[in-house]
């Protein structure tokens, strides 16, 4: 009971202090807000990139076309050669007849012209559909497959996919750098805010000591003040993120530029991200105030 009374008192004092030194608190809060907005955007971006690369990975299939004069045994050789490579997830055979049928099914004009072809007339090629395990290594895998005898052409996303992923990962790294720098600046700002609060309440602190308040109960309100700053700083980013992402998702109808890039559904995704943002705000605030208390509140 006593602990909760002290905790309640500390929380009340922390809020009082935040509003008493409002301009100073605002500086810290805005810094936390900016940091957290950038963190939120980076987090959403990188999680989405992870999500759609996962989706793309399942979809990206390279088609290995075999030369027309290949025999049954050539086909088997090609298959085993591909299977021996280390980046192969799955391999399936698609005969030229199957390809023809597929094309005929897909379009009325194809159906009319191709329907007149005899088996011997079919100019299409037998092919293997290959899925890779690591999308980043698809280029080298393609090169390996091209070297195999009787392989005519290998067709796949031609680099656009990896380029996209590569660009995103660079942006991600830059964002991480900015976030770390901002977190450091924020921590220093909070240390300064709490330091000034400590100085402005010197008299109160000295009286608390005289009448026998424990060190813990003297320090607690200041540490909580940092938490409160962090919490207040996370309000705007969380609101912005929640409404912003839902609006963004709805505007693009769940796909960004092409159906290939699927966005993560807002619910429950945004709640997780919001939780992370609030937690981060509180942690950053607490680190700052804890340091200030350790450095400037000698008891």
């Amino acid at each position: 009971m006593k602990f909760f009374r002290m905790l309640f008192r500390s929380i009340r004092d922390a809020f009082k202090s935040v509003f008493r030194n409002f301009s100073l608190s605002m500086a810290s809060i805005s810094c936390i807000t900016i940091t957290l907005i950038i963190v939120a955007v980076s987090l959403i971006a990188s999680l989405n990139v992870d999500h759609f690369t996962e989706v793309i990975k399942q979809d990206v299939t390279m088609v290995v076309f075999i030369e027309n004069d290949a025999t049954e045994s050539d086909l088997a050789k090609v298959k085993s050669a591909i299977e021996r490579l280390d980046n192969i997830e799955e391999i399936t055979f698609k005969s030229k007849e199957e390809s023809k049928q597929e094309m005929m099914d897909s379009d009325e004009i194809f159906k009319q012209t191709m329907g007149e072809w005899d088996i011997k007339d079919n100019p299409l090629r037998d092919s293997y559909l290959v899925k890779v395990t690591k999308l980043e290594k698809i280029d080298s895998t393609v090169e390996e497959i091209k070297k195999i005898d009787k392989v005519a052409v290998v067709s796949y996303g031609e680099g656009t996919v990896e380029q996209l992923v590569g660009t995103f990962s660079i942006i991600e790294k830059i964002a991480y750098g900015i976030v770390i720098a901002l977190v450091i600046v924020t921590v220093f700002l909070i240390i300064n805010t709490i330091k000034l609060t400590i100085f402005s309440r010197k008299r109160e602190i000295s009286i608390m000591r005289l009448v026998g308040a424990s060190n813990f109960s003297i320090k607690l309100p200041f540490v909580i003040e940092g938490m409160v700053l962090g919490l207040l700083g996370s309000i705007l980013p969380v609101l912005g993120l929640t409404y912003g992402y839902v609006a963004f998702y709805n505007y693009f109808k769940g796909n960004l530029f092409s159906p290939l890039i699927q966005l993560i559904k807002p619910e429950p995704f945004i709640f997780y991200v919001a939780g992370v943002i609030i937690l981060l705000g509180i942690i950053v605030g607490t680190i700052g105030s804890y340091h200030a208390v350790r450095r400037y509140l000698k008891v």
């Binding site: 008192r9 109160e204 009286i207 608390m208 009448v211 026998g212 308040a213 424990s214 109960s217 003297i218």
Partner: peptide
């Protein structure tokens, strides 16, 4: 404490020890 009343000043000593 200049910003606290007489009552609050005295009660403060008990408040801070819970």
């Amino acid at each position: 404490l200049p910003k606290s009343t007489v009552y609050e000043n005295v009660a403060f000593a008990l408040e801070v020890i819970g």
